[in-house]
Nucleic acid binder design. Structure first.
Lengths: 341, 341
DNA sequence: ATGAAAGCGCTAACAA
DNA sequence: TTGTTAGCGCTTTCAT
């Protein structure tokens, strides 16, 4: 038996409207009545019905946050940044996971819209750009990890990051450098292309070897196994840290020493690989900061929305930085080529 | 300019109520009208206003899911199980993170209640039991990872798990076995107590050494450093995998070989440590399965709710299983005692 | 400073 | 099979 505003109003002996205002801290209500109202609400265990509130008012003070995959701690870090940046603002974050499935991503955003959220934040999603465009027209949208034309985005320069990694591996003397990619998302494509371009730029086009994968540990493990049988690379650049972790697991299982026999590099500098134990060479583009920036873009857009202004979409590009750790090393010996095995 | 039911109704030339029923697939509406309604809705870009729908109807078909900490991939796995078990059911999961902060946990549940969710799922939360009791009275509740009297719970037998780990370490010849605990939550307390009891049962009471920590990697690292300076244990049982990972990092940084000089064990068998690369000895209590069971408990309770029945709360205990991996080994040599260093 | 009244978009009885 | 009507609980003018 939920308590309503009317119950509280009856208790205090005032009108429902007054209770509504009092509870939301309007200055137009006498301090003394406010206190009585608050006391009564407390006493009765009143809890506002958000559905009713949101139906009645224009703004819902909610923003829908869609996360690509909860398994990747990267997103938890981005969310930390976002939450920190939104701290103190009335907007409430409502979370959804895409479960690495475009159909479920779409369903989640549809649900956000059905909730009439004030804004949408898309973190690492893979859905088609066209869809994002459509959604961005329905509600202010900020995208993290991907550049969508005409939409506020915070991204990293994937191409530069991938180039840095590839050059690093080449500079260590590796020639047979393979790549396990991250699928069909734009970020993955950019990383893959930059890898290939860099290889080509160093005259290693015949060593370009791309294994199609995914942003998961499983994909890394499988990718390693396939690559190892196929061509025994001396270095593998994995699409992201999770994937690199899979490569490391596969190598360990196959008895391949890292970095003595195989160098491995990832992307994202997740908390996991920052740990001394894993110590993976990777690319850093501070995810917490990315989340914070997303929050700021969001607030800016929301503020303009309120003022009925429009503004050009902003794209913030974070500079990726190569982080050298223990999984990459200079090539030691020419590996047996697979033909002779 | 959002499209409403009335818009669709006007377009088709029928009443709003009919459109409402048609869109929700009622059998009481003529197939032919349904088609026209659906076509019109599509054409107009109609999207139901969930706030209005939920205000008008008794059930909201939503369940609020609160997760202790998005950084721990364990919870992603539990959620996978939960989502799988709820698949095909109309209930929509709405997610919230507690950010490892009891105050924010409370705020999140309050928000669930304000949303008038049909049910609540609490995953790994640390809030006081009394609070959970109160909430469980407001809405059907299922708790994962903790046993709350009178509330549906799915838990693991923390005491047995911790005992298995401790006995394993002792059986390897370790005497100076330390524990880094997981804080003040009930699960952490159970693990800590079982560790101490087991030590005592083996006549090792003078070696009991508990370092207060948290379920984070950071806590593991700090705990290792403190313990190492203090008493040079030959084995450390960390509160969970994340914490164990921190211990491994700390050890690596200090140049301590695992498992030659130090054995390390964790708890949870997270995907991370299942990977061949980390290969941590730990305790498994299948998290995906835990999520699935939570989903089943939820559905059972929801069904009874609908039938206005009540039923005794159910507690499902998953049997923990020790998983031996590469971070634990028989003690090699008596370490120098700190006094002589 | 407070109250009355209208309406947000939808569902659910009940009528027709 | 379809339409009418009355709310759901709240916010928000507009009076007072």
């Amino acid at each position: 038996v939920p308590v309503t505003l009317d119950d509280v109003a009856a208790r205090v002996g005032v009108s429902r409207a007054l209770v509504s205002m009092a509870l939301r801290g309007s200055s137009r209500v006498a301090a003394h009545t406010r206190e009585r109202v608050i006391a009564a609400a407390e006493e009765l265990g009143y809890r506002p019905n958000l559905n009713a509130r949101r139906l009645a008012s224009a703004r819902t003070d909610t923003v829908g946050v869609l996360i690509y995959d909860l398994h990747n701690p990267l997103f938890a870090e981005i969310l930390d940044g976002l939450a920190a940046a939104m701290g103190g603002h009335p907007e409430q974050l409502i979370l959804a996971s895409g479960f690495r499935d475009p159909a479920r991503e779409t369903a989640a955003v549809e649900s956000f819209l059905a909730h009439r959220v004030d804004a949408i934040v898309l973190i690492g999603t893979q859905m088609p750009s066209a869809e994002i465009h459509a959604y961005a027209r329905s509600a202010p949208t900020v995208v993290v990890g991907r550049h969508i034309r005409g939409v506020d985005s915070v991204i990293t320069d994937n191409a530069t990051g991938a180039r840095l990694v590839t050059e690093h591996l080449i500079s260590l003397g590796h020639r047979n450098v393979a790549h396990i990619d991250g699928g069909t998302g734009l970020g993955a494509i950019a990383r893959r292309r930059a890898y290939a371009d860099t290889m080509r730029a160093h005259g290693l086009q015949q060593h370009i070897q791309i294994c199609s994968g995914e942003y998961t540990e499983e994909a890394g493990r499988v990718g390693f196994e396939r690559l190892w049988i196929r061509s025994r690379p001396t270095a593998i650049f994995a699409a992201n840290d999770l994937c690199a972790l899979g490569v490391l697991s596969g190598a360990r299982a196959a008895g391949v020493a890292v970095p003595a026999e195989l160098s491995v590099a990832g992307f994202d500098n997740t908390a996991l690989v920052r740990s001394g134990f894993i110590s993976l060479t990777t690319v850093d583009w501070p995810p917490v900061q990315a989340g914070e920036i997303a929050g700021e873009l969001l607030q800016a857009r929301l503020a303009r929305e309120l003022a009925r202004e429009t503004a050009k979409p902003r794209v913030i590009t974070l500079t990726p930085k190569l982080v050298l750790r223990a999984t990459t090393a200079a090539i030691q010996a020419e590996p047996a080529s697979p033909e002779r095995v």
